[in-house]
Structures are given as C-alpha cells and as structure tokens.
Design a protein around this nucleic acid. Structure first.
Lengths: 252, 252
DNA sequence: GGCAGCGTGATTGTGCACAAAATGGGATCG
DNA sequence: CGATCCCATTTTGTGCACAATCACGCTGCC
C-alpha cells in the first residue's frame, strides 16, 4: 500500500447539488423560527420528502444536520421533533448570547469611524425592512428580520467564527421564545434595533461630542437581550405535557 | 396514559449500536487532537469502515457529524479531510475562546466560596494528572489534558451551552495549533494551569486578605490564551500526510 | 367496564447495489 | 523531453429494498 500523499484540499463550487440540502435546511429552519413548526412538532421523514420532492435519505441527512444545531431532537426509532428547550436551556442560551453579543458590540465599537458606506447602507436598509414589517404588522417577518439583524452585526464585527456560533444561538433562542413566550402581547424589538443602529452609526445625539455611541451601544444590546428574555415565562411548566417516554428514550 | 416504567426497562444497549457512532467520533476526534491525524489528512470512508469494523454508511454519518463541528472538511466527490484552519480562522477561534473563557472565569468568580469539595477535588486531581504527564514527558496526554482542563472549568461555570460551544472551539484550536505551531520547542501550559487552579481555589497567596484570586484568574486565563496563540506562527502553512491504518492500529 | 396481551400498520434504521465523479497512470503527439 | 488527452480504477454519492422497532387498535378475559 502506498502512503496517501495529501495536498491542501481544493475548494469546489458549493452550488452543484448540495444547494438542495441547504435549501431544505433553510426552509425548515425558517419554518421553525416563524413558529409555523412549534416546538414538539413531529417531523416525519416521508412527509418532508414528499413536500420537498426529494428522497427520504436526503431528508434524513438534513434532520441530522438540524439535530447538530440543536433545533431538532432525534429520538431513536421515534423520529425527529422540533426541539423544545427546557427553561434552564433557554436561560443558558440567552446568557451565551449576552456573552457573544457583548463581544460583538465591543468589536464594532473598536472599528474605525466613520463606518464604511456599505455597512451603513445595509444597516439602514435593514432598519427600513424592519419598519416596513412593523407597519404591516407582519410578525413572522419581524421575527426573521430580528434574527438577521443580530447576525448582521456579528458579521460586521469581522469574526466569522463568532458569527456562526451566534447564528446557532439565535435559532435556539427563537425556539425558546416559541416555547416560553407569554400569552400577553409583547412589544417587539424594532425600537431597540433602531436605537442600536443609531448608536452604532453615530447618528444619535451625543452631547459629549467626538465619540460615537459605542458605550451606549453595548449597554443597549445588553438591555435589549435582557428585555427579550424577560418577556419569557421561564417559571411556568410547559403548556403541553411532555412525553416522558421521549424524554427518557436516550437513557436506560 | 400510564407510563410503563415498571415492567420494561428499555435498556437499549449503550455500546451496541448507538454507542458505536459515538465511539468512532471520540476515536477520530482524539486522534485529531493528538496530532496522529494532522490537518489535511484524507479520511477515506472505506478505510475507516474497515478499521472500525462498521459499515461505510456509519462512517459517512460520523464524518458528517465531525464536519458540523468543523473538525473535518467535506468536499463533494472528493471525500473528507482533517480540517486545516487558515491563519485568519485560527485567530478567530482564539478570539472566540477569549470571549467565552473570560465569561467562564467571570462566572466561576461569582460562585460562592469556598468552592464545593467535589469541585476542588476534581481540580486537584486534574492538576495531578497534568503534572504526571509533564514529568513523563507525555506530550499527547498533556495536550488532551489541557483541553479537558478548559472544558472542566466551563462545566463548573454551570452553563452547559457555553461549555458545548467551548468544546468545539477547543477542538478547533487544537487543529490550529497542529497546523501552525512553531518547530521550536515551546513550553507547555501546565504551569499556567497550576496558577489558574491556585487563583480559583484561593490557595494562592493574596496579600489583600479576604478575596480569592478571582480578578487574577480572569487575567491569568487571558494571558494564558494569548500565550498559546503567540506560540503559533500564523504565516507558515505546513502540509503532511499520514497512514490511517497505522494510526488506528490498536483499535477496531 | 376495565385491563392485559397481542397483532397490525406505519415509521425509522441499515445494508447493498449501482451510478457518478475524480484520481492516477500510460500512451500519444507536439 | 514535456504536455495533453484518454482510459481504467478507485472513491464517493444516491436510491431502493428489507429489517427492526414502535404506536395504536383489537380481542378476549377477569
């Protein structure tokens, strides 16, 4: 046998066939984020295969991927279910978000000013989209845009690794919100986002003169995350009785 | 509905089938962390299937899992390779570690003192293991123990989500170290870990009296991570290959 | 009427066989 | 002598069929 001599792995076009899988992952992920698939929903392989017109194996692969992201739970011989975070898990996810997003804001503040026009343009564009969704009362769009906003900031911060981690945490916090949000209507966070953009772009009023609203931006973000978490009811028992068999399926 | 807990203990064989995958994941993961599988090494499905005596589909699943952790890179129609971080990715991973581990240390400092005996015992036990490996000159064990130490601290901090994220980052930083470490001998971090344990346990000398060395611990950790990153040469790009069968000769 | 045991249908898990694609070697031509 | 093209072999990708397992409804019995 010959020793396999290995070169640096070349990059190949990611659009050939793997694009279909990514499409399904996005589709299901967005459906979960939009609450069209509430926590606990069973995701039958055959049904999904028919819906997306792909083979069952492909669906299986997608579910395995989503399970790694902890947005679905795989139970042996039972199938895949939309993940239903526990209260503790929800708290952990929000704490992790505070940790990472504080770092993101710190990095954004360390960026040279003024921000690049492209950055400002994307921020303003996003603000416009959120305001439009708010006016239209499109709650689903608002939720999706809210997640995208936080992810956008992470990308501007220039650390793709942190952004990837945050993306997963955003997905999971959406799940937590779906599982624990109070029945009472709650004010969505468009106003918080507006203030954040102002503080970051430096368009807000800063009586102290030269500085941008960086320090403000960090505290704004922390307050924002605290507010979102505070809108959850992390003490009440979950609305639907949890299937104990499912919970304990993995141990024995 | 009644739950059948009394009669049928659904003790699914932990090692029988589902455990096999976890075993392979651990095996490959440790081999990568131990540098037995350097970055860029090709991981052929058939070879791995023979080595672990499982079907190729199982290996495929494992590789997909490791790819999600970004420990291996999957290239369509080319196969799986041990991930080879770029210099920028390495910097990002270390920055992410600083972000998360600073939070971990903050949480550890916020813990009530004195620390639980079980915690102190595990810390001291770990210190002993690292010292033993250091005396024996067992570099592989030292690397593995070093990763376990950081993970241990994260677990003590009480946020499993952060710990999971950090675990992935530790794996990837091990990859980065393997890819970019300087050829010159470098002092391993056992001494840093000793000091960290002292600061956390409060056994170090603290002339200021009542407080433990918490603030010290945070800076110690940051310095420690900076030192590890500083030992890398983020300009060179080494490239090697290794024989799969010899690496896994002892298992099966 | 209620409960235990059992059979059936449906769903997931796994191996296998074939198809597609790339790698490597060799021959051919400039 | 070197580069290029082509073919054979190896490796990866995918669909299919069958096996295993679970949920549910049924029958019979107490």
């Amino acid at each position: 046998m010959k020793i396999a001599l290995t070169a640096s792995p070349p990059r190949r076009s990611p659009r050939g066939r793997g694009g279909a899988e990514a499409r399904i992952v996005r589709s299901i992920g967005e459906a979960i984020a939009d609450r069209r698939l509430p926590p606990g929903t069973k995701l039958a392989e055959e049904s999904l295969a028919q819906v997306f017109s792909v083979s069952r194996e492909r669906v299986r692969k997608v579910l395995l991927l989503l399970a790694q992201r902890q947005v679905v739970t795989l139970i042996p011989n039972r199938g895949a279910f939309v993940a239903k975070p526990t209260a503790q898990e929800a708290r952990e996810v929000f704490e992790a978000r505070r940790v990472i997003e504080r770092a993101v804001m710190d990095k954004l503040c360390a960026l040279p000013r003024p921000l690049p026009p492209a950055t400002l343009a994307r921020l303003n564009d996003h603000r416009a989209q959120e305001e439009a969704a708010e006016r239209a009362g499109d709650r689903k769009a608002l939720i999706r845009l809210s997640g995208q906003f936080h992810l956008l900031l992470a990308e501007f911060a220039g650390n793709g690794t942190l952004a990837t981690i945050l993306a997963s945490l955003i997905d999971r916090s959406g799940l937590a919100i779906a599982a624990f949000e109070r029945r009472t209507a709650h004010t969505c966070s468009a106003e918080d986002h507006r203030r954040l953009i102002d503080a970051l772009a430096g368009t807000g009023d800063h009586p102290h003169g030269a500085g941008c609203g960086c320090a403000d931006a960090v505290t704004l973000m922390m307050t924002h995350l605290d507010a979102v978490e505070a809108q959850l009811d992390l003490d009440a028992t979950p609305d639907t009785a949890i299937d104990l068999k499912s919970v304990f399926a993995e141990e024995g």
